[in-house]
Amino acid sequence: MKIAVASGKGGTGKSTFAANLALSLSKSNDVVLVDCDVEEPNLHLFFDAEHEESEVTVPVPVVDPGKCTFCGKCGDFCQYGAITVLKDDILILMDLCHSCGGCRIVCPYDAITEVPRVIGKVRDSQPDEHLRLVTGVLNEGETHAPVVIQMAKALAGSTPTPAGAVFEHQFRELVCSMADVTIYDSSPGIACPVIETVEGADYVVLVTESTPFGIHDLELAIGVVEKLGIPAGVVINRSDGLDEMTEELCRRHSLEIIMRIPFDRRIAGVQNRGGLFSQDMPEWQGRFTDLYHHIRETGGGGA
């Protein structure tokens, strides 16, 4: 089963939830935890282990000056303004290129080829016998987070390659994992990286907090899962008991509140220092396991 953990607002404790869920479930299942928050991946801070690393690249155009006639067709075609054709030179703004390959197709003189450009990496580690951690890392200054997410999910062995995907060649050597549970930790927000993460999951856990910001952003995140049509449930983190507005919002969208984690300085302290509270407070492991069974029974049909 594939569970995505998301939140509209940042810092609601999404990664902590994902890490504790993974740890608890790994006591009786094979678990793969995938850090899809590639802009700020944090899960490795909880699970220190040696990792293998491979690069994530995107193809970008290079022009053969011997063949180019400066006809300008490539520049005209590129929808992102990545190619400017000068009198006797071509300027390619790599950071604007989306790697669509159109310029290569459109060039009448076969002057364009594509070369890989590194934009990030994926790391694979095995912090525990039944727990594997796959981390996507977007390099600083790069913008194409969804590509790195796609690679991390593929490495985790849980997504089929989309038809004609840019990175097809990179998948071949990868081993497929046979995990019981795959957990995707998403980035905050509601834009393309979140979609890339959540797509293909059987169930989405939305982690929120009962503040006006939390509620406002939860509603946006609900919009995303409703649009994608994936079953979802809500976890209220750092609950101080004043949850009426969150409850009301969930009622309106027929979403179940599947867990409440109270505000507790002990929990916060363990986390801030890079620990996992379900390790220090083992009673939580049972709660996370029960939660997983509950999700399987009520929402996420897939096995």
């Binding site: 802009e39 700020e40 977007l138 790069e142 987070a145 905050p188 927000g189 834009a191």
Partner: peptide
């Protein structure tokens, strides 16, 4: 500003 380091941040 937005969180993260990706395209909206840049």
């Amino acid at each position: 500003g937005p969180p993260g380091i990706g395209c909206p941040l840049i």
